[in-house]
């Protein structure tokens, strides 16, 4: 099993010390050659960014975690077909994006087919995953959480073609070139979509300006 070394903390520490020095491509090559710790290091590097990206995309934490795992499963089984022509991060974000888009399409179908949806209200609880915090929350944090929920909702209402680049740019901090590669678009189109997405968000969040 390739991920035997993920779970046991001691081994993860021992292997990750040596694997962390390697580039993504080197880790992929090592995984192809049967180095299971290399794939564990890839997972360790990308699990949080990919989960965060999918969560901001779908605004559903459980679904985001599920698709994040599916992303790594696909990477694992398709590792032989991966070519190092472009960055691994581009490759894995592209897989995650495609999965998220498929999920949104499924949601639309479910919405259309669901008769009970006619009687549901649009009010949804926007919950974010966060580690347990034993401290008492000050009012400032409460306000911040409310604002974060509104922003997340605003992002969710963006069309997919604007949602993907704005998340990658302003939340994930990707460069325009990387975003253009992930979306398989031209640089100009990518910039234009990001600009348009900001304009749309500005309209939706004007009360916070």
């Amino acid at each position: 099993m390739a991920l035997d070394k993920i779970e046991t903390g001691a081994e993860v520490h021992r292997t990750s010390v040596s694997e962390k020095k390697l580039s993504d491509h080197a880790l992929i090559e090592a995984t192809k050659n049967g180095d299971e710790a290399a794939f564990a290091e890839i997972v360790a590097r990308y699990r949080n960014p990919i989960t965060n990206y999918l969560y901001r995309f779908l605004n559903d934490y459980e679904e985001a975690v599920d698709l994040s795992q599916e992303t790594f499963v696909r990477v694992y089984f398709a590792i032989e077909r991966y070519h190092t022509d472009y960055a691994f991060s581009t490759y894995i974000y592209r897989i995650a994006t495609n999965l998220a888009i498929s999920e949104i399409r499924k949601r639309k179908r479910r919405t259309i087919l669901s008769l009970t949806g006619l009687f549901q209200t649009d009010v949804e609880d926007v919950t974010e995953f966060q580690p347990p915090d034993t401290r008492s929350l000050p009012d400032e944090d409460l306000l911040e959480d409310e604002k974060a929920g509104v922003i997340a909702k605003a992002i969710e209402t963006l069309p997919v073609k604007y949602r993907v680049p704005i998340i990658l740019r302003d939340i994930e901090g990707k460069t325009y070139d990387e975003i253009a590669e992930i979306m398989e678009l031209g640089l100009g189109t990518t910039k234009s979509r990001i600009s348009r997405a900001r304009g749309l968000l500005k309209e939706k969040l004007k009360h916070y300006f």
Binding site: M1, A2, L3, D4, I6, E7, A40, V43, A44, R47, N48, I50, T51, N52, Y55, R56, Y61, A64, V65, S68, Q69, E70, F72, V73, Y76, E128, F129, Q130, A148, I151, A152, I155, I166, I167, D170, I171, G173, L201
Partner: peptide, 21 residues
């Protein structure tokens, strides 16, 4: 957008991924 909290993977992510694979 940049100030939004980074939402990471759960603690049992690796364990679930291992089982899934």
């Amino acid at each position: 957008l940049g100030n939004l909290r980074i939402i990471g993977a759960p603690k049992d992510f690796d364990h679930r991924l291992k089982a899934r694979i």
